[in-house]
């Protein structure tokens, strides 16, 4: 099973298109979707449901925009609620992050890429021993044309469809 966490407030955004590409690329596998864009979603109340789904998942896909070098607050909140310090998800072999950064890679390296650290050093150690993190990022979104967006969507599709193999 695959759990896909989507976090962007606006439908029609690049992030929502990335989510659609990812779901399409999964083909026959229907993921458990955690939709953090729903303002009425009670993340604390659903923490157990999400943890159950994670405990049965082999892959976790995170789809979010990077804001201030890290995940949006709604996703941070999900980490705090579902990934408590004692939680372990030994079945997860792969974490795939699909994110976009408004500014360039250079600016992001100055900012410290805190989201990358949270995923690889806080989430990954709680997964299977050999769990790998795949990072699919689009930098410089603020000044990026439609062709680069399309290439990003293609890349997301390609790398996610390769997950099963």
């Amino acid at each position: 099973m695959v759990t896909l966490v989507y976090c962007h407030p606006v439908e029609g955004s690049l992030t929502s298109a990335v989510r659609d590409s990812a779901v399409e690329a999964l083909g026959g596998t229907t993921p458990h979707i955690v939709d953090l864009s729903d303002p009425d979603r009670d993340t604390a109340a659903l923490a157990m449901t999400d943890a159950d789904a994670l405990a049965r998942s082999s892959s976790l896909i995170l789809v979010y925009p990077t804001w201030w070098s890290g995940p949006p607050a709604a996703l941070q909140n999900w980490f705090d609620e579902v990934w408590s310090p004692s939680a372990r998800f030994d079945t997860i072999q792969r974490i795939v992050v699909c994110t976009s950064h408004g500014s360039s890679k250079f600016v992001n390296s100055l900012e410290g890429e805190s989201g990358k650290r949270t995923v690889s050093r806080y989430l990954r150690p709680r997964c299977a021993r050999r769990c790998r993190v795949e990072w699919i990022a689009l930098y410089g979104l603020d000044r990026c044309g439609p062709d680069r967006r399309a290439r990003h969507l293609e890349r997301v599709g390609r790398r996610i469809s390769a997950l099963g193999s």
Binding site: W67, G70, P71, A74, Q76, D80, T118
Partner: peptide, 13 residues
């Protein structure tokens, strides 16, 4: 967790 707490990150966002 390793990130900022959600309320503070939300305020910044």
């Amino acid at each position: 967790s390793s990130g900022l707490s959600a309320p503070v990150k939300g305020w910044i966002d």
